[in-house]
């Protein structure tokens, strides 16, 4: 849950990146992810120019690089699990660096790791630099079904609360188990989850009453004007152009050519 609290803290900043229209940031994030994931399976160096995007956004927004990295690495296990099979199944040597023969499998594994880091960091930066309510306002304007956006808002609102209830239940159980902490047996676990569920249902009833008391009629209304300004347009244009160039021109190749490396 620290993830949520931390994110909402960072998202309250007021850097130029924070002030951009959430729609512009969404568009650029999607372009970035598509560009990064569209490379061939052995591409590593071609992905490098894309590192500029998370680096620049993190720096300009003042979000700490550590918090971006920590969140990004949370995604690592599944990728490692699947990616690590590549070196075993793909043993053809495709490049030799000095005496070291690198197989396609290792190359593609490295590529998977890099693209994972890039793609996830873009999503992480989006939420770290955008207030969730404004992000939802943007999604509403971008024609997502209203009921779904409202659902996102309510979910986001009550996650911390229910997580707190869950934590207190587990702590109460731990305190009664004499310090040695056995994992919950199913006979303890199921009623605990059941109780959590009943409390959630009660909570929903009370929230519904509070909404009705203030004349809720099934429609959630909000006033969150978003203004798409010229800087938003430029933001999309500049990054979109950069991604396009790096996707279709071999920037690292050109650079090494300039440096005379053979």
């Amino acid at each position: 849950m620290e993830a949520l609290a931390g994110a909402s803290g960072d998202a309250l900043g007021s850097s130029p990146v924070h002030r951009l229209d959430p729609r512009a940031k969404c568009v650029v994030t999607v372009l970035f992810v598509v560009a990064v994931t569209s490379f061939g399976r052995y591409d590593v160096s071609r992905l490098m120019p894309f590192v500029l995007y998370p680096v620049a956004i993190a720096t300009l927004s003042g979000v700490s690089a550590g918090s971006v990295a920590a969140r990004t690495l949370a995604a690592a296990p599944f990728i490692l699990l699947v990616g690590l099979f590549n070196p075993f199944f793909d043993r053809q040597v495709i490049v030799r660096i000095g005496g070291l023969a690198v197989t396609g499998g290792w190359m593609s594994f490295l590529s998977i790791a890099v693209r994972s880091f890039l793609a996830v960091s873009a999503a992480v930066l989006l939420v770290l630099t955008t207030r969730f309510d404004l992000l939802c306002a943007g999604l509403r304007k971008m024609c997502l079904p209203r009921v779904f956006v409202t659902q996102l808002e309510f979910l986001h609102r009550y996650i911390g609360l229910l997580a707190g209830e869950a934590q207190r239940m587990v702590r109460a159980h731990d305190l009664r188990s004499n310090g040695n902490r056995p994992k919950l047996a199913l006979v303890v676990y199921a009623p605990m989850i059941g109780l959590l569920l009943l409390r959630a249902l009660d909570r929903a009833t009370r929230v519904h009453r509070a909404m009705k008391a203030r004349l809720f009629d099934g429609e959630i209304r909000v006033l969150r004007p978003l203004a798409f300004s010229r800087s938003d347009f430029l933001f999309i244009l500049a990054w979109g152009g950069y991604f396009l160039v790096c996707r279709f021109a071999d920037v690292p190749g050109l650079l090494s050519g300039l440096a005379g490396v053979r």
Partner: peptide, 20 residues
């Protein structure tokens, strides 16, 4: 916690007047 169900303080206070 039951009464403040909207994402921000502004949204929440505006909820009733908007419904009016």
């Amino acid at each position: 916690e039951d009464q403040l169900f909207m994402p921000t303080v502004f949204d929440d206070v505006a909820f009733g007047p908007l419904n009016q």
